[in-house]
């Protein structure tokens, strides 16, 4: 399973994400510069966290205009897996691949901590290795993770099982309905604020991110017959 990790000016979790794919999955992974729009050879794309374009104008807004977004859109249309982490989630929202928008945290401060999440839907390529309602611990680090959408969209997300992760316990940013991660209707595009690549070894304080990556690989193997 060949992964692509797009790099925008200002991305800063690109290396961590690449390392996680190598360390957890031992699969090939390539860093792709944002001006490349051809992603045909890849099986999955993980848009890393960071501050693309310095978060200027709106988080993710300027990255959403990059040539590589064409390739990402194409991949998503073909049913390939697309995961956006933190700034990657913000970019997916700005691109319209996921519904809604991101606002500044309600307390206005940057927040970095290990946050408790509950896995709300395991019927997705990203969560099939978790159990329904499982409580996991994954670090967050953002100043703009206060997810917003209108009432109608929220109902749709709820009804169609597109809310994948919710904050369990404290809501660290004021997001609507405690949302920490959502997917598209087809369930092959996931955006999440928490950083699974920061929870893969015991010494990091949690290993709950591992299952997210292994789920992706398992799904790909099942659907591509490669064992």
């Amino acid at each position: 399973m060949h992964f692509a990790v797009p790099i925008f000016p200002g991305s800063n979790c690109d290396r961590d994400t690449i390392h996680a794919i190598e360390d957890v999955l031992d699969q090939p992974v390539t860093a792709v510069w944002h001006q490349d729009s051809d992603l045909k050879k890849f099986d999955a794309i993980i848009i890393p966290g960071g501050f693309s374009y310095g978060d200027y104008l709106r988080t993710g807004a300027l990255a959403a205009q990059s040539p590589i977004m064409e390739g990402i859109r194409e991949a998503a249309d073909q049913g390939k897996l697309v995961l956006g982490i933190c700034n990657g989630f913000q970019i997916l929202l700005e691109t319209g691949l996921l519904p809604g928008a991101m606002r500044r945290n309600d307390h206005l401060q940057f927040r970095c901590s290990i946050s408790r999440l509950s896995v709300e839907n395991t019927q997705t390529p990203f969560t099939l290795g978790f159990s329904q309602g499982e409580q996991i611990r994954i670090p967050i680090a953002h100043i703009e993770g206060n997810y917003y959408c209108d009432e109608e969209t929220l109902q749709e997300l709820q009804q169609k099982g597109q809310i994948i992760f919710r904050y369990a316990g404290e809501n660290p940013n004021g997001s609507i309905d405690y949302i920490a991660g959502i997917c598209n209707e087809r369930r092959n595009v996931l955006g999440m604020m928490p950083h699974p690549e920061r929870a893969i070894f015991d010494w990091m304080g949690s290993t709950d991110g591992v299952k997210l990556f292994t789920s992706m690989l398992q799904y790909w193997k099942e659907n591509n017959g490669a064992a």
Binding site: L57, A61, L62, Q65, L93, E94, A101, Y148
Partner: peptide, 9 residues
Amino acid sequence: EKLLANPVM
């Protein structure tokens, strides 16, 4: 429409 404002909010 395309960049400077986000029509969602």
